[in-house]
């Protein structure tokens, strides 16, 4: 029996007592969670276009101006690029560069937090001056879709904190790091969803 393995009882057979990727249960759990969450976003985006095209010809309705892109064009690259340090962080864990991984995940966390902060202190107050969720269906859709995404970013930030604390405590090795993988997967998902949310909320009304 070598370190990190256990005998199974079949003579000469021993298996690793850890797993990553598709060998582990939790990786599958995360993939399925992403499936169900993606369905939730897909249905909400479908509802957006359903309501837009069932309504009048003018979108946004009620004299609301088309969404401005100034703030969101700063937010979007910050969030999308945060996938880079997160990816590099996972890579660093796999290679055993734990110090490098700490910095990478911290950078990713700060970028995600910046995105959320800009949304809460600049984008939402600016938008609320023009319309609120109670104004009409457009307002309801704007805030529910971006809000649901923001909630997912928030959960991702909490997951990142959990990963970072465990990283500091030395929980991960190049072999044992399935939680890091699962978090990375979730974070990429949240970023990819933003592309669709951004396209729906900010770009589509211009066409």
């Amino acid at each position: 029996m070598t370190i990190g393995t256990l005998d199974t009882g079949v003579p000469g057979e021993s298996l690793p007592d850890f797993a990553t990727g598709s060998r582990s249960f939790s990786w599958w759990g995360m993939v399925l969670l992403i499936c169900t969450e993606a369905t939730l976003f897909g249905l909400l985006i479908a509802s957006y276009f359903y309501l837009r095209f069932r309504g009048g010809v003018v979108w946004p309705p009620d004299g609301i101006a088309k969404p401005t892109l100034s703030t969101v064009s700063v937010m979007t690259p910050i969030l999308l690029l945060s996938s880079v340090p997160v990816h590099l962080g996972e890579h660093a864990v796999r290679k055993g560069h734990m110090i490098r991984a700490r910095f990478a995940f911290l950078l990713g966390w700060l970028m995600g937090a910046t995105f959320l902060l800009i949304q809460l202190v600049k984008e939402y107050p600016d938008t609320l001056k023009l319309f609120t969720p109670r104004t009409d269906v457009y307002g309801s859709l704007f805030f529910s879709l971006t809000g649901l995404h923001g909630l997912h970013v928030f959960v991702g930030l909490l997951m990142s904190l959990w990963i970072q604390v465990r990283l500091w405590k030395g929980a991960f090795t190049p072999e044992r790091h399935v939680s890091v993988q699962n978090f990375t997967l979730y974070w990429h998902f949240v970023d990819v969803v933003w592309i669709f949310v951004f396209g729906t909320i900010y770009l589509s009304p211009h066409f």
Partner: peptide, 17 residues
């Protein structure tokens, strides 16, 4: 509860959704 308008036809929503 919060006065959103997804299904309210008067505010651009649609009950069929």
């Amino acid at each position: 509860r919060l006065g959103f308008h997804f299904f309210d036809i008067g505010k651009g929503g649609d009950p069929i959704l």
